[in-house]
Nucleic acid binder design. Structure first.
Lengths: 123, 123
DNA sequence: AGTTACCTTTACGTTAACGTAAATATGAGA
DNA sequence: TCTCATATTTACGTTAACGTAAAGGTAACT
């Protein structure tokens, strides 16, 4: 039992599921964030591609640029072989983490401010 | 003891403190996010303006557009008088909160993924 | 064979958030 | 008075992230 359960998706299927335009998905491909296979000229997306698309959209919601998301993605795709490269990756991971932690703080303060504002209004 | 401790800032002082260009600050003014007083033609920023600028930058770090930030700011400046308006404001607050909660989730998943990636590299 | 529903590539258009340059004003110090 | 630092307004330029045609290919009904 091999080669079974290889579900794939068309571009319109994914665009409907995630509520984005096909144009956006093609744009992400053009920006090297995703690389679907082809059947002739038609793009075919695997489950892995779908996961990657989810990662892209998650990054966008957090406010990352496509360039930043590409950096993250290429970290995932790194051969994980050479030591020097690994150091660099760990560095970048640490940077990302710091930015994300800062965002967490920012979000929490903003949530607090919203609460205060709400209280002012309700009172 | 009134009218004391009214510290103010010039545009370059604020731009240095927050590591942004004066151009950006003027842009925020043009977009109605801040409204400093003037001494002749020169802009003079009060402590309140400074706080507002911090709010702007915090919003930016979270990934908000200037338009969204302006919405939040105008919520703060609302007269808090009419009931109908108040309802609308509470609605918008709720929307903001939902978006922020989603972002918190997104950030946490991304932090988890970074951890996994790191473990893969260290192992 | 004709229409319909998707798909493709190419390419110009648009918006946000500034960058950058030019020309000008102003107060402080040498 | 001259120069320097800092300020102003005006306006065109730039980049990212798509939007929006336009022109055409392909597989499946009718």
């Amino acid at each position: 039992m091999n080669e079974i359960n290889q579900q794939t998706y068309s571009i319109s299927e994914l665009s409907k599921e995630f509520e984005i335009t096909p144009r956006s998905i093609r744009h992400y491909e053009q920006e090297q964030l995703i690389s679907p296979k082809r059947a002739g000229s038609q793009r075919i997306y695997t489950k892995g591609d779908r996961v990657r698309l989810q990662l892209i959209l998650r990054g966008k919601r957090i406010g990352f640029s496509l360039a930043e998301i590409r950096e993250i993605i290429t970290m995932y795709d790194s051969p994980s072989g050479e030591q020097k490269q690994t150091e660099l990756l760990l560095d970048k991971i640490e940077q990302r983490r710091k930015a994300l932690n800062q965002q967490q703080k920012d979000i929490e303060t903003m949530l607090l401010e919203l609460n205060q504002l709400e209280n002012r209004l309700i009172k």
